[in-house]
């Protein structure tokens, strides 16, 4: 098999696995609109997270299947770094429902998304976005993608 085809086959398998895991996280199969609805739910995360870059929270490209606390260069809480969690869809579902209950000591001081359908939609979005063009451009195990760094001002103290 040519390298290009091999890559596509691997991506297809990963996407299949991700979808299967998303399915396992909820009672019902995500419908065709799940990822689109999940994109709207993902807007809630925008103060701290982005797909391609580390922000106050780590980037989400490559999240599904990643070991918790493993994005190079990101300053995780000790609790997250030592959690040994693999971000399967089931674990993500559990974490999103109640982050502080699953990982006491996490810096994600957030009550959680209590609605199961919302979590399922969000996971469908994360799985789909993780295989999309924006995430394919992000190196899997390197620092954040090259982007123009911007100046900031420290707040007056």
């Amino acid at each position: 098999m040519k390298p290009g085809r091999r890559r596509h086959a691997a991506l297809a398998m990963l996407l299949s696995l991700a979808c299967h895991q998303v399915l396992a996280a909820g009672d019902a199969e995500p419908d065709a609109g799940a990822a689109a609805r999940g994109a709207l739910i993902y807007e809630r995360c925008a103060a701290c997270h982005a797909l391609e870059t580390d922000r106050t929270g780590p980037r989400h490209c490559g999240l599904v299947g990643r070991r918790a606390g493993s994005v190079p260069g990101f300053d995780y809480s000790p609790a997250m770094r030592q959690s040994k969690i693999i971000w399967t869809a089931a674990n993500l579902d559990r974490f999103l429902k109640a982050p502080l209950a699953m990982v006491p000591g996490t810096a994600m001081g957030y009550d959680g998304i209590k609605d199961q359908r919302e979590r399922r939609d969000l996971l469908a979005y994360l799985a789909k976005a993780g295989q999309g063009a924006r995430c394919r451009a992000v190196p899997a195990a390197a620092g954040p993608p090259a982007a123009r760094p911007m100046a900031h001002q420290r707040p007056a103290r």
Partner: peptide, 12 residues
């Protein structure tokens, strides 16, 4: 926590 030396935004 201190402000980071640099922040990355989708300026493009």
């Amino acid at each position: 926590m201190a402000a980071r030396d640099k922040y990355v935004f989708p300026v493009e």
